[in-house]
Design a protein around this nucleic acid. Sequence first.
DNA 1: AAAATAAATTGCGTATACGAAAATTATGTG
DNA 2: CACATAATTTTCGTATACGCAATTTATTTT
Lengths: 208, 208
Amino acid sequence: MIESSPPPSATSDELTTDGGRNEFGENLRKLRKDKKMTLADLATASGIAASTLSRAERGLLGLTYDRLSQLADGLGVDMAELFGTGGASFQKNSISVARLGEFELQTTPNYTYEMLFSDVWGKAMTPMAGVVKAHSRLAFDDFIRHPGQEFVFVQSGQLTIYTEANEPVTLEAGESAYLDSSMGHVYTSAGDEDARILVVCLGRGDSA
Amino acid sequence: MIESSPPPSATSDELTTDGGRNEFGENLRKLRKDKKMTLADLATASGIAASTLSRAERGLLGLTYDRLSQLADGLGVDMAELFGTGGASFQKNSISVARLGEFELQTTPNYTYEMLFSDVWGKAMTPMAGVVKAHSRLAFDDFIRHPGQEFVFVQSGQLTIYTEANEPVTLEAGESAYLDSSMGHVYTSAGDEDARILVVCLGRGDSA
DNA sequence: AAAATAAATTGCGTATACGAAAATTATGTG
DNA sequence: CACATAATTTTCGTATACGCAATTTATTTT
């Protein structure tokens, strides 16, 4: 087990940081091999020494921004792909089915919902199906926020969406909305009936 | 004008490297200010010294991978957003609404569907709503494929999904599936009634 | 306007990134 | 198996990232 010696002030992040660096390195080696490149090939293509690339792949060093830029160029990928966002890879040639009532209902004061496909690794979208019990914005202490984008579809009932940067919008059954989920938002049922909705989140974290 | 002295072997990349670093720094400062954070706030949130953050924002240094990871966490963004990548950017603080019948119906022999939010730039998910007129796999010349992942939800009726790598699956109303869309697939209605479905695609291209 | 406070930048010592060359390991060929 | 070649890793010296404390600049308060 190789021991790296991070700066003293980073002690609390030591495990996290090392873990991230190793994952990055593994992804880098995978990308390189997928393209049938040797370290020397990539060194030529990127302008980074083969020795540095080898160390990066083994998580022995953390590349600087400049080197990361060069690497993305050398590999012909963008930065996002270089970081292989989403640790587990999505199973190729797979299809998963969510049966009615298959997933455990999660209950909060304001929502009752199922997290669909919670057992599917590496999926980029997070679908959720449920019922909005909140009928007033006052039911919420604060807005919900998480990085990414969100699609919400109203199956039945009437839904009002409050956001911190826009006028509230009300959707009827069959209607939908698409929003920046990093902006504070809450969903409330707008009629007598609890609205039934389907939500698909993209990005880290989830809505509810 | 501050002068940095890069390694001799990086001379040919000097301008490019500095340029990239300055852009990154500007984006970082923008992200931080958008969130109403001081350097000290972000230093606390990320575990990186304020002086380092200041230098990074002014392009005076290139952060290492470890620091970049901490930064993304501290800012609550993913790496892609940190680098400001992605062609057209999704409008921050936006919400778009798709009303019933708002979008033009697109008709093929096998499907009638609306491409929801077709006017929204930079969205990563492509939602579609429609009806499956095909009741037999024989209606299709070939499977449909496109890179990425796909979520399909059955609003009404019964849907059978044929894929090239799996046994067919049949979904009832309220059920859904999540699949690798690069794998050949077709959707067919399975009962007398045309199934009504909602599809959300992620990745380049779209299904139908 | 002066004083107080907040925010950003600079100075300096230590740790780590980095490249070139040498050494080691892995692979291919006769 | 021996040898040649390719690929990767290690060594070592130099440059740069990094954090803490001090200083400067910007903003707010009186």
